[in-house]
Amino acid sequence: MKKLMNDPKNVVEEMVEGYVKAHPDYIKQLPENDRALVTARETSDGKVGILIGGGSGHEPGFLGYVGDGMADGVAVGNIFASPSPDPILEVTKAIDKGAGVVYLYGNYAGDVMNFGMAAEMADLEEDIQVGMAKASDDVASAPKAEKEKRRGIAGEFFIYKAAGAAADFGYDLNEVVRVANKANDNTRSMGVGLSPCYLPQTGKPSFEIEDDEMEIGLGHHGEPGIEKGPLETADRVADRLVQDILADIEINEGDNVVVLVNGLGSTPRMDLYIVFRRVEQILSEKGIKIYRSYVGDYITSLEMGGCSVTLMKLDDELTKMVDHPVDCPMFVQK
């Protein structure tokens, strides 16, 4: 393991400190808790606050998406671990503008528990109304009949996009939650792992895999996938990922989708564009129209090798959310 770090115990604090210093016009750290970050820009009274968060190691997710048009604040956890309720509550208090705050997070046990506890504290101690929406886009993590058990992976990015736009449009708390859940319901992802990442504190790989193998359906923390098999070509990998996604959601000829080909940390853009090339071919052959496409590292897993493919099926409302301008340090859309 080779990493540019000092003391492994301080990697999150030093990363957050560096991020805030690099982007002071976008984000600031709350004095009450160094894991609580909020937008450095004024937001309007009566706007629903958008709070995102999760473990570190997924950069640019999640702190990279605090900015105009997306999140108003982020709670930062340890590597691959949920933030505790304390920074979540501090961000909640800082971004509430009288209309409540919506929590957006992945469907993981630690996040469900800690965001739930923070919501109770916000209600009982601060009289702040909180709504919540969980990302559960990973088709590999549970069968369709048990969708509520699925974990959130790169599709979380589309949920942030939709909910942030809805809040900007002046939707109330319940409507922002509805839009976030609608985005999640219309989003599916699946990934492939090619090489593990190494946790700074242990120096050990997140999973074991041979040089000539790949793991289909791998999770963003190294959770096992559906199957481990021989390394395939980019086209064969894309075929499998898109096939499993389309088998899980009804997307028909003439429908519009948004596509994300997401790198997991160490996959070159060259590889990602080769995968996207095949994804576009598959969808074009089926008469499915790509309305927007995103290719790059959006939600990573330290230096893990591999990628995921995400499709979000659009209707008029979700198209409006996708088109809304965004200005964040790690994502700009005009």
Rank of each mutant, 00 (worst) to 15 (best):
R35I: 09
Y105K: 00
A118T: 13
M113K: 14
M113T: 13
A118C: 04
S84R: 14
T43C: 05
Y105V: 11
D72Q: 12
G61P: 00
E125N: 07
Y108L: 13
E148P: 00
K93A: 06
H58I: 04
A36S: 09
A140Y: 06
H23L: 11
R35T: 13
F115G: 10
I52D: 04
P85Q: 10
M121G: 02
A22I: 01
D137N: 11
E42Y: 11
D34N: 13
H23T: 03
V48H: 02
V112R: 14
V38T: 13
V76Y: 01
K134A: 13
M132S: 15
Q29E: 13
P83G: 08
M70A: 09
I95Y: 13
N78D: 15
G67N: 12
K134Q: 07
G69N: 09
V139N: 06
G57S: 09
V139M: 03
A40N: 15
K93Q: 14
K134F: 02
A133N: 03
Y65H: 01
A145N: 14
L124H: 00
P143L: 03
P85K: 10
N114H: 15
A119R: 11
A22G: 10
I128C: 06
G98F: 05
A99F: 02
A119W: 04
A109R: 09
L104R: 07
I88D: 07
G73H: 04
A119C: 00
S44M: 07
M70H: 03
V139Y: 03
A133R: 00
G131T: 00
G54I: 11
G116K: 06
D86A: 13
A140P: 09
Y26D: 03
E120L: 12
A36I: 08
A99G: 04
E125C: 12
N114E: 05
S44G: 03
E146N: 12
K149R: 15
G54E: 05
N33T: 07
I95V: 14
S56Q: 01
K144M: 07
V112L: 12
P60K: 09
G53A: 07
N33L: 01
I27F: 08
G98R: 05
A75P: 02
G131M: 01
A118M: 07
V101H: 01
D138I: 04
S141F: 07
E42P: 01
P87D: 08
A140T: 04
M117Y: 02
G49C: 05
I88A: 02
G77W: 03
S141W: 02
G77K: 05
G116S: 09
S56A: 10
A135V: 15
A140F: 12
L124I: 10
K97W: 04
S44E: 15
D123E: 14
S84H: 11
E148L: 09
Y19W: 13
G73A: 03
K149Y: 10
D68L: 01
G64K: 09
G116W: 06
Y103F: 15
T39E: 07
